[in-house]
């Protein structure tokens, strides 16, 4: 779902006409609880690797606190919704770090392969696992090029009310969908990064021409991970 500016403006105009009393500014604001998430938005992140500090994992901690993601000190089977990786250029030896999480693809391979439809993409571009119908086959984990998903290997407790998670199902970054629905207009990782003063993660609506994320994407080069796969990810990187 890659709308160009003209299409986007057209859509908003149609939406504005179809809903009397709706002003354009309201689009950027929170939906009412009874309103459905729509294609008018496409939520995403812009990650500036140049600003991401080596040794800092504030985003990782914040995400896991926010979503009640706990482990058992068993690295191979503990879940990770977001992780920091350090990469080194093969030719030049240049080293940098960046956070990695679900890329919220427009064409997510995890959604393609899921036999029950538990792995799905919401209208506003957020890729989620419906744990109610997840049978724990892990085919999505085989298919995801970003290794974004974790299988819950053990019994869970002390889950957050907004982030249910249980043994035998698969989970991954939800783009803090509960915060998005609440209208926070940010994610736990982006908030934490900002608080640390790095501002390497920016959350926003890729469809909203007036949003900061859109403006920054339009004014400087950026890339997707595995662009060769043409998945049109919702998470973009600069400084890479």
């Amino acid at each position: 779902m890659s709308l160009n500016r003209r299409e986007f403006l057209g859509l908003t105009a149609v939406a504005a006409l179809a809903t009397p009393g709706l002003r354009l500014v309201e689009l950027a604001q929170a939906r009412a609880p009874e309103e459905t998430a729509t294609k008018l938005q496409r939520w995403g992140l812009l990650i500036d690797a140049a600003k991401c500090a080596d040794g800092c994992d504030a985003c990782v901690t914040a995400c896991h606190v926010e979503n009640g993601v706990t482990g058992h000190n068993r690295p191979a089977t503990d879940p990770q919704w977001i992780r920091k990786v350090k990469i080194k250029d093969r030719q030049t030896g240049y080293v940098q770090t960046l956070p990695l999480m679900c890329q919220h693809c427009e064409h997510p391979p995890c959604v393609d392969v899921c036999p029950t439809g538990a792995s799905f993409k919401r209208a506003d571009g957020i890729v989620l696992v419906d744990k109610h119908i997840c049978i724990g086959c892990r085919y999505c984990m085989m298919a995801c090029p970003y290794k974004a998903r974790s299988f819950i290997h053990e019994d869970t407790k002390d889950q957050k009310p907004h982030a249910p998670r249980g043994k035998g199902t698969v989970e991954s970054c939800t783009l803090c969908v509960h915060k998005v629905d609440r209208g926070d207009n940010t994610t736990a990782c982006a908030e934490a990064c900002k608080k640390e003063g790095h501002e390497a993660i920016l959350f926003g609506d890729l469809n909203d021409a007036g949003s900061e994320i859109r403006k920054r994407l339009a004014s400087a080069p950026s890339t997707q991970l595995r662009p060769d796969l043409k998945l049109n990810t919702g998470v973009r990187y600069t400084g890479l």
């Binding site: 990770q80 992780r83 920091k84 990786v85 093969r90 990695l100 290794k147 060769d228």
Partner: peptide
């Protein structure tokens, strides 16, 4: 390991990347 970056090696990760 999955090829996440075309011309870069992952040298550190808490999730066994690279």
């Amino acid at each position: 390991p999955m090829p996440l970056f075309a011309d870069k090696d992952i040298i550190e990760s808490s999730f066994f990347d690279g």
